[in-house]
Design a protein around this nucleic acid. Structure first.
Lengths: 236, 236
DNA sequence: TTTTGACCGATTGTCAGTCAATGTGATTGA
DNA sequence: TCAATCACATTGACTGACAATCGGTCAAAA
C-alpha cells in the first residue's frame, strides 16, 4: 500500500508527537551529549506515560541519537570526530545519489522549488543567523529528498543529517566559507537543471567533501583548545 | 565510549532477544508480506508482555520491515519491484563505500578472513542450497562491514540487506548466474587484497549492478506470470 | 590509609490489568 | 440487494506493581 502523500490525513498518535519533540530536542542540543534521559524525567517533561516514552526512546536508539546502556537507561550520543568523519563519508555518497536521482527523475515543479530554496540561501549574507541558515539548508534537503524518488536514500540521509546537526550549523555559517558553500550548492542546482545526473552526483560529492574539510578543521581546532585548557588546568 | 568488543559482558534483555527473533522471522519469510502482526499473537508466540512486543515492533518499523497503520497495528512490509530497485540503488553506493573502506583500512587478519569466506563461496557449486549460500554471503558481508571501519555504513547496509533477503536468495542461487557471481566477488576480494580502494569501489558497484539486473529480470518474469494467471482467471 | 564488603536508594526491565477510541464484520431492516 | 446499526476485537495509552541491577555510602578489616 504505497502512500501517495496525496491529501492523506493520518491521525497523529501521542507517540508520534513525542518522537518528533524528543528528536528535535536532542538534535537541537537541548539535551547535551552524554546526558542521561531517565524515564521519569521524560515522563514529567512530556506529560505522558512510561510506555510512550520507552517506545519513542527505542526509535531514537535506532536512529543513533541515543545509546541505551542496560539497566541504566538511554544517554544522548556523543559524536566523536571519528564518528563525524564516518558520517561525512556516508553522507557524501548518499547525497550524491540523491542529487543524481533528483536530476534524472524530479518533476519540473520540484526543480523550480529547489531553485527557489537555493535563491533564498544565496540571498543570505555572512552574519546571517546560523539557525536560520540551517533551516534553509534543511528545506533544500527536504525538497531534494522528496524529488530523488528513492525512499531509502531519503530516510537514511535524513537520519545522517540529524545526526550531525550541531556540526553542520557550525560549518554552514563559517563566515568566510559561506560564499564557497553557496557556490557549491549553485553547481548542484545547475547540474540538476541540466538534467545532468553525473554532474549532480559530482557536485554533491564535492559539496560534502568541502563540508567535511571545514568540519575537520573545526574539530581539530576544538581539540587543540581542549588540550590547551587541559594544560592550563594541569599547570594550575 | 568505544566498545572494544573485548571481553565485554553485556546483559541481554528479553527485548533484545525478541527483536532478533522477530527480525529473523520476518526476514526469513516466516511471516508473509502483508501479514498482520497483532499484539496478542506475538505475545503468545514469544511468551512476553505487550510492552516488550510493542517496543520490538517499533524497531522493526524503524528498519522498514513492518508498516504500522494507526489503530490497526503492524503489517509485514511488501517489497514492490520499484522498492527493490531503490534498495539496489542505495546498496550499490553503500557497498562500494564499504568495499573501499575495507580495502583502505581493514587489518590483514580481517583481509584473510574475507578471503577465507570467499573461498567457501567459490567452492559452492550450482545446485547448492539457497539458504546455505545466502548464509555464506551474509558472513562475507559481516566481515566486510566489520572491517570497513564505518559504523554508519555498516548499520545502513545491514538494514538494506535484511530488507530484500528473499530476493537476494533468489538471485544469488540462480544456477547459470552463480559462476558470474563468484567471479564478481573474486574481483572485489582481489582489489581489496591489492589495497586498491578505487578498484574495490568499482568491483562492488559492478557486483550490485549485476545483482540488480538479475533481480529485475526475475521480478519482470514474476509480473508476467502474475498477469498470465490474472488473464487465465479472468477467462475462466 | 586503603581495601573490602554489605547495605540502601534509585532506576530500569517487565508484567498484568484497565479504559477509551477505532475499525471490522455481522446482523438487521427496508 | 443494499444500507444502517450494533457487537466484538484490537489498538493506543495509562497505571500500579515487583524483581533485578546499578551507583554510592559507610563501616569494618587488613
Amino acid at each position: 500500500m504505497p502512500n501517495d502523500g496525496t491529501l492523506r490525513v493520518t491521525p497523529q498518535p501521542v507517540r508520534r508527537q513525542v518522537e518528533e519533540r524528543l528528536r528535535e530536542a536532542i538534535v537541537n542540543g537541548r539535551f547535551a551529549p552524554g546526558e542521561h534521559l531517565s524515564d521519569r524525567m521524560l515522563c514529567d517533561l512530556f506529560g505522558v506515560s512510561r510506555s510512550v516514552i520507552r517506545e519513542a526512546v527505542r526509535l531514537m536508539e535506532a536512529e543513533g541519537l541515543v545509546e541505551v546502556v542496560p539497566n541504566r537507561g538511554p544517554f544522548v550520543s556523543y559524536l566523536s570526530p571519528a564518528d563525524a568523519m564516518q558520517v561525512y563519508e556516508v553522507r557524501g555518497v548518499l547525497e550524491a545519489l540523491a542529487g543524481q536521482g533528483f536530476a534524472e527523475r524530479a518533476s519540473d515543479a520540484e526543480m523550480a522549488e529547489l531553485r527557489a530554496v537555493f535563491e533564498e540561501i544565496a540571498a543570505s549574507r555572512a552574519g546571517a543567523d546560523r539557525v536560520g541558515l540551517l533551516g534553509l539548508k534543511r528545506r533544500f534537503y527536504d525538497v531534494l529528498l522528496r524529488g530523488c524518488r528513492n525512499a531509502y536514500v531519503a530516510r537514511m540521509l535524513d537520519q545522517l543529517l540529524n545526526r550531525n546537526t550541531q556540526l553542520r550549523a557550525t560549518t554552514l555559517a563559517d563566515p568566510d566559507r559561506l560564499p564557497h558553500t553557496i557556490e557549491e550548492i549553485r553547481r548542484i542546482v545547475e547540474a540538476i537543471e541540466r538534467r545532468d545526473g553525473e554532474g549532480a552526483w559530482e557536485a554533491c560529492r564535492e559539496h560534502v567533501r568541502q563540508a567535511a574539510r571545514v568540519a575537520l578543521r573545526i574539530l581539530n581546532q576544538q581539540a587543540r583548545e581542549k588540550a590547551e585548557a587541559g594544560r592550563a588546568q594541569a599547570a594550575e
